[in-house]
Design a protein around this nucleic acid. Structure first.
Lengths: 207, 207
DNA sequence: AGTTGAATTAAACAATTGTTTAACTTTTTA
DNA sequence: TAAAAAGTTAAACAATTGTTTAATTCAACT
């Protein structure tokens, strides 16, 4: 498969932006990564900012895509949670730098978030929030705001990847070992979150 | 209390660096924030990098200080966990941008971490890890690697603050409402983590 | 008062930045 | 095949950057 120039630039920009952030990289760096002249980058995308906006939005799509897919599925609620966490881990193993990238750019430039509003709309439309509220009304699920349910899940998925560099130093482990820990953490995240959300469920106790 | 010039620069640098990151701010911006000329910043700290190194290390100290204090205390283990989470939340309410700042700079410049090695040594010396292993050997505590215990705690404390901008948009809530959610989340974090680490403890079920 | 040294500033410096221009090459097309 | 368009490049541009210089103000000391 031959990649056109435009796609080469996008790929290079994705790599460089995610690795260094918008402010911490230069147009020439992107051009070099793509194997071409600086002017070509602007020829195709007019400016560094415009290129960034495009890359950022596409990253956000990937970032939220699997979440939306699971939410819109027909699985029972507990399975949605489980699958959501597992998919999130699968995604993050491949793209461990994305949460850091997204949250950081969002904190420094709040209006960058506008591009994801359509995707968020899909989440709301999926009815998954209503589903949770019904389970809470029936007493099956622990009653807590949906915001905090979201926080529980995303915290335990994304933070372990974001904190990789810090954790490796704190515990003195290398990349490979830490990856193994991440894998084990996925299992814990699933059973801890499900166990907390559904305190009456019989959970297998491996202790 | 009158602040000397050097301290004024440090304060300004702290504000600006945390808000925008190292690469995303200028020396002149720091000088302006401190109400003085650019040259004065370099007169006191020789370069932007050296100033940053000083600020970063002091932030890391604050970031880890309360953790070390709790670890080195004489409290029973469960109380250490509870207090650790509560102190962490107290700290993060006041400095919500610090986790993002620290993890981001760490990801982009791994050698920046060297300054915290002494503090980490204190954590190891505190014997809190051995304490956990004993509780695990007795079957009282769920057996899992200490790395994952750390991850469970830090994920549920830090991520909710880091993801503030994203969460506010996802759920369409304002700053005040989100702060209330953070407060509620603290309670959940404590009981969820303790409940998972000590599955045989009787936990009050408010559901 | 006058001298010394630190504190502070405006101005300049060289390097790098995002962006544009103008020339050159390749591809399309009529 | 020749003209037109698109693709690509080297070079230049103006703005901004971190840093330094040289001059000025300020405070302390004799």
């Amino acid at each position: 498969m031959i990649k056109g120039t435009e796609q080469k630039i996008k790929d290079a920009a994705l790599t460089v932006f995610i690795q260094k952030g918008f402010a911490n990289c230069t147009s020439r760096e992107i051009a070099r990564e793509a194997g071409m002249n600086v002017a070509l980058v602007n020829y195709y995308f007019r400016s560094k900012s415009k290129l960034f906006a495009i890359i950022f939005e596409s990253v956000m799509q990937d970032f939220l895509k699997s979440m939306v897919q699971v939410f819109c599925s027909e699985l029972p609620f507990r399975e949605k949670i489980r699958l959501l966490i597992e998919r999130e881990f699968e995604f993050l193993v491949q793209h461990p730098d994305i949460p850091n990238f997204v949250l950081n750019e969002l904190a420094r430039n709040p209006k960058a978030i506008e591009g994801i509003l359509p995707v968020l709309h899909m989440v709301n439309e999926s009815g998954v929030f209503d589903e949770a509220k019904k389970l809470q009304a029936s007493g099956e699920m622990r009653s807590m705001d949906i915001v905090q349910v979201t926080l529980l899940i995303m915290s335990n998925c994304q933070y372990p990847f974001m904190a990789g560099p810090l954790m490796k130093v704190i515990h003195g482990v290398d990349e490979t070992t830490y990856t193994a820990h991440l894998n084990a953490h996925k299992t814990h995240a699933v059973s801890m979150v499900l166990g907390y959300l559904f305190p009456n469920d019989q959970i297998p106790n491996n202790a």
